[in-house]
Simulated scan of single mutants.
Amino acid sequence: MVQDIIKVLVVDDSAFMRKLVQDFLSEHEKIAVVGTARNGQDAIAKIRLLKPDVITMDVEMPIMSGLEALKHIMKENPLPIIMLSSTTKQGAENALLAMDYGAVDFIAKPSGTISLDLHLVKDELIEKVLHASKALLKKPRAAELFIKNEVQTSKKSLKKVDSRIDRHYPAVVLIGTSTGGPRALQTVLSRLPGNLNAPVIIVQHMPPGFTKSLAQRLDQLSPLKVKEAEDGDRLVNGCAYVAPGDYHLNINQQGTNLSLSLSKEPPLSGHRPSVDFLFQSAAKLKEIKKIAVIMTGMGADGSKGLVQLNHKEHIETIAEAQETCVVYGMPKAAQATGLVTYVEPLEGIANRIVKIAEG
């Protein structure tokens, strides 16, 4: 049986970077680079001619930037697009904006616009192209909805959560996600009430420098208070904590207090932060209901931790339904354990969390 070849268009204003990306991808037997483009305008013309299956695209380019090209492509001819972004604060914000515009995923360039050490993310790049070819593309209304939500959020009153430490935790919400996660998190957290009677701890597979921007964006969109987790944070109901890139999250219980600590223990299944690590940490909590949520993402992170969680009491599990996942990897692996309590489409996850937390 002949394997389907994934046709890729590589877009970057640097000839050196185009050559590097092309060489890396061409090494894989299932990938064929059918062309390159030097800017967004050139990419749009090449798409019509070459009909690629997946596009890798630099964010910052002259004439037409990657973001502008992305908006045009997702409106006219939606395709799976992986953005290549710098690790600067602006680069992180642009990468997250690209997710809103419809990009499937992004790669952080190790050392700026011209990354001589791009080989450090070679395997990640290949893996993401392979998964992107099978990704479920969202309708190109995401950016419009984001802008609408942001305007609505700016008119809201300040967060209802006060500064006191709430030492009563009926439940903790544990969310794990990867590819497609930023938009999925926006959908879920924007629907959770600010007076949720539980703290929310989030692991999103993301490199250092990007999780803080993600937390700030989610904070704008959600009635919850959202922040990047810091070592020693005391958990507060109605607050959400995003694991910082390259750190695992531990939940510690001392009497009636719950707090977070950051860990540099080795990656689990190639991930740090890891959903498995978070779930295993939460399994130690006593007399507290655990609500584990696994959403869109490639791989199986979370499924091993789910097994450990289910050896304890007070656990309910939610997996995102296949029809709304960008990549149906992590929820599929979770369901394969036979330990998932509820399967919900993305738009129904927040409501299910609230029902369990209040039950």
Rank of each mutant, 00 (worst) to 15 (best):
Q3R: 12
D4F: 04
I5A: 06
I6R: 04
I6P: 10
I6T: 11
K7T: 08
D12K: 08
S14I: 09
A15R: 12
A15F: 10
F16N: 09
M17C: 10
K19P: 05
Q22C: 12
S26Q: 14
H28L: 02
K30P: 08
I31R: 05
A32D: 15
V34C: 11
A37R: 03
R38D: 13
I44E: 09
A45H: 12
K46N: 12
K46A: 15
L50W: 06
D53F: 07
D53I: 08
V54R: 01
V59A: 05
M64R: 09
G66K: 05
G66P: 11
L67T: 07
A69C: 09
A69W: 01
L70R: 07
K75E: 15
P78R: 06
S86K: 03
Q90T: 14
Q90A: 11
A95N: 03
L97G: 01
L97V: 08
L97M: 13
A98K: 05
A98C: 11
D100M: 11
A103R: 02
A103C: 04
D105M: 02
D117A: 12
D117F: 09
V121A: 04
K128E: 07
K138H: 15
P140H: 08
A142E: 14
A143P: 01
L145Y: 12
F146W: 13
F146S: 11
I147A: 14
N149E: 15
T153H: 11
L158Q: 13
K160D: 12
S163R: 11
S163K: 12
I165P: 06
D166L: 10
L174E: 08
G176V: 07
G181A: 05
G181L: 01
L185Y: 03
L185T: 08
Q186F: 08
T187D: 14
R191N: 15
A198V: 07
I202Q: 01
V203M: 01
P207I: 04
L218Y: 01
L218W: 00
L224A: 05
K225P: 02
V226F: 00
K227S: 14
E228W: 06
D233L: 05
R234I: 12
C239Y: 05
A240P: 08
Y241W: 06
V242I: 15
A243D: 06
G245H: 03
T256H: 12
T256Q: 13
L258E: 08
S261E: 12
L262V: 06
L262K: 10
E265S: 14
P266F: 01
P266M: 00
P266R: 05
R272H: 09
V275R: 00
V275K: 00
L278K: 05
F279V: 07
A282S: 13
K284Q: 15
K284D: 12
I291E: 01
A292K: 02
D301L: 04
D301V: 06
G305N: 03
V307W: 00
L309W: 05
H311R: 15
E313G: 12
H314V: 00
I315E: 10
E316K: 14
Y328E: 07
M330Y: 05
T341W: 02
N351P: 00
N351Q: 15
N351C: 00
R352L: 01
V354I: 15
K355N: 13
I356E: 01
A357V: 14
